[in-house]
Design a protein around this nucleic acid. Structure first.
Length: 111
DNA sequence: TAGATGACATGTC
DNA sequence: GGACATGCCATCT
């Protein structure tokens, strides 16, 4: 009966809490979940999350601000398009001022 | 059918 | 700079 806080479930929740116009990285989420070494797993969660409309996986990018997962989206340009719709500037599949738009879950959600 | 291995959208040591 | 860690999925044997 527990909520069964699965790793994926946690990732989904965090990603769903990402405010519009903001982006985060796999490591930040993994670190917030207490599994910094599971950053890879976060990528897999995104893969499944990308299928969920409630989970804006397009707001999650790698540590370099590069849309690493855009290649896995239904459309190579969909991810960038969505980000631009949110007001995020994307250049060469990279988030402009990723550092300024970076959203830290542990800083906003505060565990 | 069940079990085992590889692959993956990264990150840290 | 290189190797390892972590969790799920898909595929093969």
């Amino acid at each position: 009966m527990e909520e069964e806080t699965g790793f994926f479930e946690k990732v989904y929740e965090v990603v769903m809490h990402i405010p519009s116009g903001r982006v985060t990285s796999y490591g930040a989420i993994a670190r917030y979940l207490g599994a910094a070494k599971s950053a890879r797993m976060v990528g897999w969660a995104m893969n499944a999350a990308s299928k969920m409309e409630d989970v804006p996986a397009h707001r999650v990018v790698n540590r370099n601000g590069l849309l690493s997962g855009k290649h896995h989206f239904p459309g190579t340009y969909v991810m960038q398009q969505l980000l631009e719709e949110e007001g995020i500037e994307v250049k060469e599949d990279k988030v402009v001022d990723f550092k300024a738009l970076f959203w830290d879950p542990s800083a906003e959600l505060k565990r």
